[in-house]
Design a protein around this nucleic acid. Structure first.
Length: 616
RNA sequence: GGUCCCGUAGCACAAUGGAUAGUGCAACAGAUUUCUAAUCUGUAGGUUACAGGUUCGAGUCCUGUCGGGAUCACCA
């Protein structure tokens, strides 16, 4: 058994024996001892002083003495201000190290037979992926890996928002002004190509709007509708949506196009398929660069009409009610949410209608125990409403629903805005960080003995490691500020820092192989140093970190863990000789320790979707 | 205005209610006859927004104030 669990149980037992009151072993607090104190683990004694009817230090001494008799691994203990610090004997640590798997399975759990779906990315097809998508994708992917690691079968899914007015704007712009150009003919990546036409549409619309503002019609609208003291500029800014819906030629045309699409007009559907096809080719490339994939693709064009049957059921069950105009609502005011419409008066769906339908359809298809929706926290309210509504409908999977919410990514100048051109494009960012890695590598001089392809691949991993680590290390729930210029450091608390410690270990492992070094003396090493103990404690704690990350859906815990482990390793490397160690046993031990650290680093980073370079 | 989230060093981020609030960047000063210096060591930087409360113990929990953000569409 894990020593921490042993300590917890022993403490609970000792407390009961000494003071006659049972206590919960799981609630006994065992921390790693801070560096300034002696010991490996510290047990917090304060919770027991009341029942002990003694001063904290006296109770701690008493518990410590009984504990030492019960737990043979305890070598010594000391008491400081109500903390019981225990030191674990080297025998335990050596045994731990030699029994720790180095094949990447340390901390993993056997298959538990349960299924989880993780939905992530879920882009719109009218524009390329940006910084915000990257956070979403890395978070989703990382959760997939972590859940698999602790035993779940995970289904990776995305819903592609492939329909609606937005994609029609791109389609219309291309049809009117595209002159038959294609991504192929222009050499522009498909998703960017289609996104460019969306932007072009917006530009043309603005031109039309500005021209219209000179018309007598506009003059009339201003005179009739402007607020007291509102000048023309302010008025027309606020009037834009109304103008687009009621006066714009392009607006009319694009709405006609959407209508044609909904009526399955063959020409429109063909155009839609062709342009979305371009977008998917582009997305595939970005997903490949990010190293992610999906098991299930859902298209909004297939799901947007779902959910009406559920609404009818809900109405019959009395979970929903109908208003006089025929619209259907759910009343959630008793749980501090509002009344929400679930079906329009004309019988057409709203956003939540299709989400209700999609949830049921997916459960029927996948039968998962849990469903995770990786979506930005601006939709918190929507998911509260969705999940609560599913519960009221009595859907059997409703309690397994979870909104994996994450904070928005902002720039130092504020939110990213398409219109202001401040959106950080995903592909640009990926290219830039790899370029940066190459630039910095060339300043460091050549690595010998590698082919050009190997070098390129290593540097790609370094660049992507920097980018991914920078994003995934932040607690997902928090908003994050992304500074593209300053943020992609390759020094300090970064992906490359961790990768570098792995590369150092990799060098050792190659030498072990080259020189056919025997590691069997590791168990006979007798003087574990502080730097070594630090590593052992860290390796020992990895499974608990993974479990916490899985429980909280929080990969940043693993990111911070990997950094701490790498930092300990760099210090160990600096302070202690490995191949030139004082004894053969020390050498064997340090090499074994290095091997274990390398395995856990690679495994931890893999859970974050980060690959390790062999050399750098 | 209602609801929810956030406020930690110049900046970016840590800290299951536990010891003296940590780490990186930026700044300054050092370390390479030794397994890769994308490394290591040191200096400086804090009334954890503010005011109360609960607790043996509060950055963390509760209340209020101030500041920031999200959301409250028959949009998605």
């Amino acid at each position: 058994m894990n020593i921490i669990a042993s300590l917890q149980q022993a403490v609970a037992k000792v407390v009961e024996e000494l003071y006659g009151e049972p206590s919960d072993a799981a609630k006994v607090l065992v921390n790693t001892t801070p560096p300034d104190f002696t010991g490996d683990y510290s047990i917090v004694i304060f919770p027991f002083v009341k029942i002990a009817k003694k001063a904290p230090d006296a109770a701690a001494m008493e518990i410590g003495e009984s504990l030492q008799k019960k737990v043979p691994e305890i070598e010594s203990f000391n008491v400081v201000k109500g903390f019981l610090n225990v030191e674990i004997g080297d025998a335990y640590w050596k045994k731990f190290l030699l029994s720790m798997p180095v094949d990447g399975t340390h901390g993993s759990l056997p298959k538990n037979g349960k299924k989880v779906m993780v939905e992530y990315s879920s882009p719109n097809t009218n524009k390329p992926l940006h910084m915000g998508h990257i956070r979403n994708i890395l978070l989703g992917w990382s959760n997939v890996k972590i859940l698999e690691f602790v035993g779940y079968e995970v289904i990776k899914a995305q819903i592609i928002n492939d329909r609606g007015i937005a994609i029609c704007k791109s389609m219309l712009a291309w049809k009117k002004f595209g002159e038959g150009k294609t991504p192929e003919s222009t050499g522009i990546k498909g998703d960017h190509f289609v996104g460019d036409w969306y932007v072009f549409f917006e530009k043309k619309t603005m031109e039309e709007y500005e021209t219209w503002q000179q018309s007598t019609e506009a003059d009339k609208a201003y005179k009739e509708l402007h607020k007291e003291g509102e000048n023309e500029k302010a008025f027309f800014k606020g009037f834009k949506n109304k103008w687009f819906n009621e006066h714009s030629v392009l607006g009319t045309e694009v709405r006609e196009m959407l209508l044609k699409w909904e009526q399955h007009d063959p020409e429109t559907v063909d155009l839609w398929k062709m342009m979305n096809g371009w977008v998917y080719q582009g997305f595939d490339e970005t997903y490949r660069d990010l190293g992610v994939s999906f098991d299930k693709l859902y298209y909004e064009s297939d799901t947007y009409l779902l959910g009406k049957d559920i609404v009818a059921e809900g109405l019959a069950k009395g979970a929903f009610f109908k208003k006089d105009d025929g619209s259907v609502w759910v009343d959630l005011t008793d749980v501090k949410l509002d009344e929400k419409v679930v079906l329009r008066a004309d019988g057409t769906s709203v956003y939540i209608t299709q989400d209700l339908g999609t949830a049921r359809m997916r459960h029927k298809e996948l039968g998962c125990e849990r469903y995770l929706y990786t979506v930005a926290d601006e939709q918190n309210y929507h998911f509260q409403v969705l999940f609560e509504t599913l519960k009221r409908l009595g859907e059997p999977y409703a309690n397994g629903m979870h909104h994996l919410a994450y904070g928005m990514v902002e720039l130092p100048t504020g939110r990213m805005k398409t219109r202001e051109g401040t959106v950080v494009d995903a592909d640009d960012l990926i290219a830039e960080v790899i370029r940066l890695a190459k630039e910095q590598a060339s300043e460091r001089g050549e690595i010998e003995g590698l082919s050009t392809e190997q070098k390129q691949e290593n540097l790609r991993r370094v660049g992507m490691g920097a980018l991914k680590y920078f994003i995934i290390k932040v607690n997902p729930k928090k908003r994050m500020i992304f500074n593209p210029e300053e943020s992609l450091d390759l020094q300090g608390q970064t992906g490359p820092y961790i990768q570098y410690s792995y590369v150092r270990i990799n060098g050792l492992m190659q030498r072990i192989e080259r020189e056919n070094i025997d590691l069997s003396g590791a168990g006979d090493y007798t003087e574990i140093q502080a730097q070594e103990k630090e590593l052992l404690l860290s390796l020992h704690g990895f499974p608990a970190i993974v479990q916490a990350a899985a429980d909280d859906y929080d990969p940043s815990l693993i990111a911070n863990y990997c950094y701490a482990l790498a930092k300990s390793y760099h210090r160990f490397w600096h302070d202690l000789s490995i191949f030139n160690a004082d004894s053969e046993n020390a050498k064997a031990f340090r090499l074994s320790l290095s091997k274990a650290v390398g395995a856990v680093l690679a495994s931890g980073m893999n859970l974050l979707g980060i690959e390790m370079p062999e050399r750098m």
